[in-house]
């Protein structure tokens, strides 16, 4: 207790709350990207290594819509999400659907090939240097001494909204229920007449849309670069292994756990350490509980 009191004394409560808000914003973005990945894994049983590429593509689509078409931020976000969703659905048709009966290693390698291509193509079109997206609502909000940028408030609000919407879709609509059904029991879903082909395509589209929306949300805070997908890939895979591959609540909890660990680890321990911390967590959890924190299908 003395230790905790000491830390609170040294680094005041305001700093702590500020870091907490940063972690929540980051966690929201991680959750959106990880949810898509875990949905695809649940339905298709494919660890989609191209997911980070779709996320990165989303950021570039938003950038292109903003700077090329000159549309407002929200429209750019929606355009990016729709564009990447369409591409992801095409990807499922062209690559993952034909490979559904091949050994798993084949679809993993194909996904790596797609990631290769997306990164190289983006670099060819937009160049290797960083791109900046302006904050749609510049400035800060002061909540009793805790200072947060509007963009972070926007990120937190939007990701909560999207997660709630996704939850409603999965639990309350028939189409959403088919996705849940397929991830719980493929054969059973087919038996009761679920159109397995359509569900696979739909899941990929949702997953791409979520990743692109997340990228468009965080793009004004970070810079947009072709390499941003690789780092995110690693993190969201760590999250879904942590949460249990295919588990939706596991992905959300894992995302916020990772964000909290990164922000507070980076702030209180060492900033260089922040990017590796998720991985250290992953090694620790795997050593103790190899099947992840949540079991699939809960």
């Amino acid at each position: 207790m003395r230790g905790a009191a000491f830390i609170l004394w040294r680094l005041s409560l305001t700093t702590f709350l500020q870091q907490l808000f940063n972690a929540l914003a980051l966690g929201g973005v991680y959750a959106l990207v990880a949810l898509g990945l875990t949905l695809v894994y649940g339905v298709m049983r494919v660890p989609n290594f191209a997911h980070g590429g779709l996320y990165m593509l989303g950021a570039y689509f938003a950038y292109a819509a903003l700077s090329g078409l000159g549309v407002p931020y929200v429209a750019a976000l929606l355009l990016a999400a729709a564009g990447v969703a369409l591409l992801a659905a095409l990807l499922e048709r062209a690559v993952f659907y034909p490979l559904r009966n091949a050994p798993h290693v084949h679809s993993m390698i194909a996904a790596i090939g797609v990631l290769f291509f997306v990164e190289a193509a983006v670099q060819l079109i937009w160049g290797p240097d960083f791109k900046q997206i302006a904050e749609p609502v510049p400035g800060i909000v002061n909540l009793g001494g805790v200072i947060i940028t509007w963009q972070r408030v926007l990120v937190i609000a939007a990701s909560v909204l999207v997660v709630l919407g996704l939850n409603y879709f999965l639990k309350r609509t028939l189409t959403g229920a088919t996705i849940e059904a397929m991830s719980q029991n493929r054969e059973g879903a087919r038996l009761v007449g679920v159109n397995v082909n359509r569900v696979g395509m739909l899941t990929f589209a949702i997953s791409g849309g979520l990743a692109a929306a997340a990228a468009a949300l965080i793009a004004p805070i970070i810079s947009v670069a072709p390499s941003m997908g690789e780092v995110m890939n690693l993190k969201v895979f760590a999250i879904i292994i942590l949460g249990g591959m295919g588990s939706v609540p596991g992905a959300i909890v894992g995302a916020f756990l990772l964000a909290l660990a990164e922000v507070f680890g980076g702030f209180y321990i060492n900033l260089d350490f922040a990017d590796v911390i998720g991985f250290a967590m992953l090694v620790l959890v795997l050593a103790i509980k190899p099947e992840g924190l949540f079991r699939r299908g809960t």
Partner: peptide
């Protein structure tokens, strides 16, 4: 010792992570 505690697909993901960390 750590990676083979996972089953199936997680191994590939885990080793990808190790690859990135080693480079870092």
């Amino acid at each position: 010792l750590v990676a083979f505690r996972t089953r199936g697909d997680a191994f590939a993901i885990f080793t990808l992570g190790v690859g990135v960390i080693l480079q870092l």
